[in-house]
Structure formats: structure tokens, C-alpha cells
Nucleic acid binder design. Structure first.
Lengths: 223, 223
DNA sequence: GTCTATATCTTGATAGAC
DNA sequence: GTCTATCAAGATATAGAC
């Protein structure tokens, strides 16, 4: 893990206190993403956080609790990124300095611009935060049933947000798809799977991926 | 696991002999897909195959060897499905009864029809064989470096197959994409991720998913 | 809050009888 | 080829000193 990657990971958890608890979450997220939840030991996590094996249980009830916190915070962060992008793109008038032609001629929400912004932000989040995203997307079945139920609520909100954007676009005559639920599935799937294949040293930056996917999704939606 | 699912899983491994070795692979694939490689014990596998814990080591060198066989055979099967679909769609003249207008007027390979057939087959394979596919796609980092290298060869062939289909379509003026590698990434990603979200009792059958995705991909490629 | 030491259990894999 | 029995290592989590 490079220093830059570590910074990014750490920034995601900047609200967590005390520092020892935060260091543990950061270490756990990196280990769970790299080797998987079950392949990671509490000793690994403690060692990476610079503490003894027993120190884990000062701040967390169990190894699974550590996973749940990462999953809960990660799901919330990705939902925030998605809704923020969709909202700010829908109301360009609220950003005074951005006096583009579009904001002057079209103060109404533009479904295509909103979708492009949402997909770009959501896809690039899964690249930029691929460590957290992998835990979020691929360790769901290691959660207890109660904890799983809690993150499913957040996942449904993410899905609903995308589905409504598509349905709005269809209603406005901007998108042309017969199966809005199917398109929702595909859009989300495309963005989420970025967490699987993205590699930091690769050909494309997170921003590149966001731009590429925004374009491909608008084509898929028949704009 | 329903009886139908078990049949499908078993058919994938019908070449494996003796029967005890096959039962073990089937049990391992189901367990690895359901709980993950590291969460599965050799005792789980043996019990599901109706044998003692020690019986695993009669037919396989280690737990990882079991994973490797599943991964190798699964990768090969998905590559075969992809190339078969692309090949048979490219030469409709070889299927005499299918006297469609397209095959009469255009004996040349049709990039769009070929891509549609390939995506439909590859995506629906990941649904139909989601158990195997999950092991193939999500347990790569549990393989030894040597075994990992071996499946990477197969993965590259899958990627090359799709990239060439897209490049051929662009050259023929049928597809309109600026970034062929980016489009390849997205097409493969979309199909592979089916293994993650697909559920047998869900709204869409594997065939439905194949048809939906073939359509969405052709739109993405600007036909 | 953090440590050392350890209890308790489960794991992958092997030995040797049949 | 398959079993029973078992080893040696490593797992999560806790106890109790500081």
C-alpha cells in the first residue's frame, strides 16, 4: 500500500475516535480487502495497527463488529456520493460561479446530466476507495443476519436512487428504455464491479473511469 | 440448494472421475460459492460428499488444489461458451435450417449479431452457473501464485476474444466507440458481475438476463 | 487503555488399520 | 480407496496485572 492510498483510506474514517480505534478500522479494511475477511486474523489487524492482539477487543466487540463498522460506514459514504452528485447536477443554479449555458437556458433538472454526474461519481468512488468498496461489496455474507439486514436498507436506498433517476428520464422523454428495472440493474452492476477489477497502477484513473462510464451509461439509456 | 441447481452444478463436472472425486468437487464448489473459500473447512466438503474428512486427500493434494480444479475447469467452460457463441453466430450458413433473411443477404460475419450472441451466452452462463462462476471470479486470490498464473492465461483469452470482436465491429463501421479497450472492460464487467447479484428465485431467468444484456451492450457500442 | 499470558476450540493434513 | 484416530498449528476471545 502506497502512502497516497493509505491517506485516502484514512480520510474515509477521519470521524472515528479514539485514534487507536481508527487505526484498527483502517488496518482491518486494508486486510479484509486484500486477503478477505476469513483469511484475515485479529493478530494481523492488531499488528498493522501497531498494537497487541488483545487491543482489538478494547474498541470492538468482535472481529465481525469490525467488519460491520467498515461495511456500514462504507455503504453510507457511497450512498452520500451518489445522492450528492445527483442533487448538485440537478440544480446547477445553486452553484453561482458555474455560469454555464445549460444553467441559464435550463434551470429544470436535466435527467441526462444528473445521471452522468451520478454514474461518474459512483463509479469513480468504487475506484478511488476500492479498498473499502471491496469490503462493502464482497464481504456481505460474513455479516451476522442482524448486521446484514441493516446494510441491506442502505443498499436498497442506493438502488432506489438510481431507479428513480432512470424512471424520471424515461418520463421526461430523455431516456428510451423498455425495462427500467433492468437498466437500473446494469448501471449499478457496472459501477460496483469497478471495485473488483480496479488496480491503482493501471491504465485509467478513477476520474477516467467515471467519465468513460458516464458516457457508456447514457448510450445504454438511449439518450 | 434445489435439485435442479444440483443437477446443473453436477453437469459441469461430468467428466471428472472417479465419482467420489466428482462428488467432492461439486461439494467444494457449492461451499466455496456459498460461504467463501476460507470460511469452508475440508470437513464441510467431505461431509457434503458423504465421506470422512481424510477422504479429501485421497483425490486432491490439498484444499487449494480443490479450488484450483474448480477455477481451471470453470474458466475453461466460460471461455468455451463465449467462443462457441461468437463462432456459431458468425457463420449462420453452417446451420442449414435457420434460413433467415440475414443469412441469405449477408454470409459475412455480422459483428453485431456475433457480439449479441456472445454477450447473451456469456452473461447467461454466469447466471446459470452462478455457483461455479462465483468461485471463478471471487476466489482468485486464494490460489497459489503458480495456479493463479495458469488461470490468468485463460482470463486473458476471454478478454482478447471480446476486444477483437469490438475492434472488428469498429473496423466494419458497425460499432462506434472511441475507446475499444474501455468498452471491452465494461462489457466483460457487466457479464461477470451477474455472478455476484444473480439469485435463482429472482425476477429474471438466465435467458432473460442474456437477452437484456445483449441489447444494452449493442446500445453501448453505438450500433 | 494497553499489555502479557492463556483458555478453548477448530483447522488442514497425516498415520496406519482394513 | 476409505476409514478412525490424531497431530501440530493457529484461530478468536478472555483474564488479570499495570
Amino acid at each position: 500500500m502506497t502512502a497516497h492510498e493509505f491517506d485516502l483510506l484514512d480520510r474515509t474514517w477521519s470521524d472515528i475516535t479514539p485514534p487507536a480505534a481508527r487505526r484498527m478500522l483502517v488496518a482491518a479494511a486494508a486486510a479484509f480487502a486484500g486477503r478477505g475477511y476469513h483469511a484475515t486474523t485479529t493478530r494481523d489487524i492488531a499488528a498493522q495497527a501497531g498494537m497487541s492482539p488483545a487491543a482489538v477487543y478494547i474498541h470492538y466487540r468482535s472481529k465481525e463488529d469490525l467488519l460491520f463498522q467498515i461495511s456500514r460506514i462504507g455503504h453510507t459514504a457511497s450512498l452520500d456520493v451518489l445522492t450528492s452528485a445527483a442533487t448538485s447536477a440537478a440544480t446547477p443554479a445553486t452553484t453561482p460561479a458555474a455560469g454555464s449555458a445549460a444553467s441559464l437556458t435550463s434551470p429544470e433538472p436535466d435527467p441526462a446530466a444528473r445521471m452522468a454526474a451520478a454514474v461518474s461519481a459512483f463509479a469513480s468512488w468504487h475506484a478511488e476507495h476500492h479498498t473499502t468498496a471491496r469490503v462493502v461489496q464482497y464481504e456481505l455474507n460474513a455479516l451476522t443476519p442482524e448486521h446484514f439486514a441493516e446494510v441491506v436498507v442502505l443498499r436498497r436506498r442506493i438502488e432506489d436512487t438510481v431507479r428513480r433517476m432512470i424512471e424520471d428520464g424515461v418520463a421526461a422523454g430523455v431516456f428510451h428504455v423498455l425495462d427500467a428495472r433492468g437498466a437500473t440493474l446494469a448501471v449499478l452492476s457496472l459501477c460496483i464491479d469497478v471495485a473488483r477489477w480496479y488496480q491503482p497502477g493501471g491504465r485509467r484513473s478513477p476520474a477516467d473511469i467515471g467519465a468513460l462510464y458516464a458516457d457508456l451509461v447514457l448510450r445504454m439509456l438511449g439518450t
